[in-house]
Simulated assay, not measured.
Amino acid sequence: MNAGQDKVRIDKWLWAARFFKTRSLATDAVDGGRVHLNGERVKPARTLKVGDVVRVQAEHGEFTVTVLALAERRGSAEVARTLYEESAESIRKREALDFERSLAPQLDPSQVKGRPTKKFRRQIERFNSGG
């Protein structure tokens, strides 16, 4: 975190805040419309300020966060958590989605090619019968 810094590119900040593993993934997400700044779709070079609201759709969930601090360099996870504050509604939505996923049947495709194993065949039959 740089205290004298008042603006940073949104793709750099998303990477530093650990929403994406690489900066190129963050750039692709911004280009793909999965990142909105203050309700608007933006480009990767758009600057971010403290107090901005960012909505991010990442592989591990959808987040609505308020920017608390700026950083251009990626640090530890503890430092990354200090860069933003997630809204209560965002947390509630993610937890509800995680709960729904936990209720969905989990198939174990241990053998993707060839004939299914006896265990996998039983899981398929259980899934297809609704039980």
Score class of each variant (00 low, 15 high):
124 I>A: 03
98 D>G: 04
118 K>D: 07
93 K>Q: 15
73 R>L: 10
3 A>H: 14
28 D>S: 03
89 E>S: 14
54 V>A: 01
127 F>P: 12
112 V>T: 12
32 G>C: 04
42 V>M: 07
22 T>M: 05
112 V>Q: 10
81 R>P: 02
78 E>S: 14
73 R>K: 13
61 G>Y: 12
26 A>P: 07
103 L>R: 14
60 H>S: 11
76 S>C: 01
87 S>L: 08
108 D>Y: 15
36 H>Y: 15
60 H>A: 10
4 G>Q: 08
62 E>I: 04
99 F>M: 10
68 L>W: 03
116 P>K: 02
45 A>N: 13
76 S>F: 02
66 T>A: 02
90 S>I: 05
21 K>P: 07
76 S>G: 10
59 E>A: 10
128 N>A: 14
78 E>H: 14
30 V>C: 02
68 L>Y: 03
54 V>R: 00
25 L>D: 13
48 L>F: 06
30 V>Q: 09
83 L>M: 02
9 R>L: 01
49 K>G: 13
17 A>G: 06
16 A>S: 11
57 Q>T: 14
48 L>P: 06
46 R>F: 00
99 F>Q: 13
94 R>N: 05
92 R>L: 08
104 A>H: 12
39 G>E: 07
117 T>S: 15
97 L>G: 09
27 T>N: 08
120 F>C: 03
44 P>T: 01
95 E>S: 09
12 K>C: 08
24 S>C: 08
66 T>L: 06
71 A>L: 08
90 S>Y: 06
43 K>V: 06
69 A>Y: 01
118 K>L: 00
98 D>S: 13
129 S>T: 13
37 L>S: 04
101 R>C: 07
82 T>M: 06
69 A>V: 00
79 V>Y: 04
83 L>V: 03
21 K>D: 08
89 E>V: 11
13 W>D: 01
101 R>W: 15
36 H>F: 12
7 K>R: 13
34 R>Y: 14
69 A>T: 04
107 L>W: 14
35 V>Y: 04
25 L>S: 07
90 S>E: 03
99 F>C: 05
75 G>R: 04
63 F>V: 02
106 Q>S: 09
96 A>T: 07
20 F>R: 01
78 E>D: 14
46 R>D: 06
126 R>T: 02
35 V>R: 01
87 S>G: 09
86 E>C: 01
92 R>V: 12
40 E>F: 12
28 D>G: 02
48 L>C: 04
59 E>M: 06
121 R>I: 02
80 A>M: 08
116 P>R: 00
89 E>D: 15
28 D>R: 08
47 T>F: 05
66 T>Q: 14
84 Y>P: 09
15 W>G: 02
83 L>G: 09
41 R>L: 06
129 S>L: 01
128 N>C: 02
58 A>M: 05
6 D>F: 01
33 G>R: 07
131 G>D: 14
23 R>K: 11
91 I>Y: 10
87 S>H: 12
130 G>Q: 14
77 A>K: 15
74 R>H: 09
84 Y>R: 01
94 R>K: 10
125 E>F: 00
8 V>M: 02
83 L>E: 03
41 R>C: 08
116 P>I: 02
93 K>I: 15
94 R>T: 11
86 E>Y: 12
42 V>T: 13
125 E>K: 05
94 R>S: 11
8 V>E: 13
15 W>L: 06
78 E>Y: 05
38 N>Y: 11
39 G>A: 00
109 P>V: 06
120 F>D: 00
